Computed example of a mutant assay.
Amino acid sequence: MLYPSIDVLMNKLDSKYTLVTVAARRAREMQEKLDQQIEHPISYKFVGKALEEINEGLLDYEKAEKK
């Protein structure tokens, strides 16, 4: 079972696509810099850790403006 659940995560962001994009970017960043904002994550994979950070409200994002 996914932790945190998709239902909880959908309350944090506006769409599944935004959730995937933010989590993937943060996971890549964690791989490169070897940093994480949660001290004792439940997940051991980078994407899972990114989802936990989103759930805790530690990540902010801005929507790009349409041209």
Score class of each variant (00 low, 15 high):
M30R: 04
A24F: 04
T21E: 11
M10R: 13
K16T: 00
Q36F: 01
Y17H: 05
N55V: 00
H40K: 06
T21A: 10
N11H: 14
E32N: 11
L51M: 09
E53L: 07
M10E: 10
F46R: 11
G57T: 11
S15C: 08
F46Q: 06
Y3D: 03
Q31F: 09
I42K: 11
L9R: 10
L51V: 03
N11S: 13
M1N: 08
E53N: 10
M10V: 02
L34G: 12
N11I: 05
L9S: 13
A24K: 06
R28C: 05
M1E: 12
Q31E: 13
K67D: 15
K66F: 04
A23D: 07
L13G: 04
T18P: 06
L19E: 05
E56V: 08
E32H: 05
R25C: 05
R28K: 06
L59S: 14
A64S: 05
V47E: 05
A64V: 12
Y44R: 09
L58E: 04
I42F: 04
G57W: 02
V20H: 10
I38Y: 01
Y3K: 09
K66Q: 04
Y44Q: 11
I54T: 01
G57P: 06
Q36R: 15
R26C: 08
A23Q: 04
T18V: 01
E65C: 14
E52R: 11
E39T: 11
Y61L: 01
M10G: 02
L58C: 12
D14S: 06
E56A: 14
K66M: 02
E39Q: 15
V47T: 14
Y17R: 00
A24Y: 05
S43F: 00
K12W: 09
A23F: 13
S15F: 04
A64M: 10
E39F: 02
L51G: 07
I54R: 07
I38D: 13
L59W: 08
K63D: 03
E29T: 03
L19V: 00
S5C: 01
V8R: 02
L9I: 07
V47S: 10
E65T: 15
R28T: 04
R28I: 01
I38Q: 04
V47A: 12
D35E: 13
K16S: 13
L59P: 05
K12E: 11
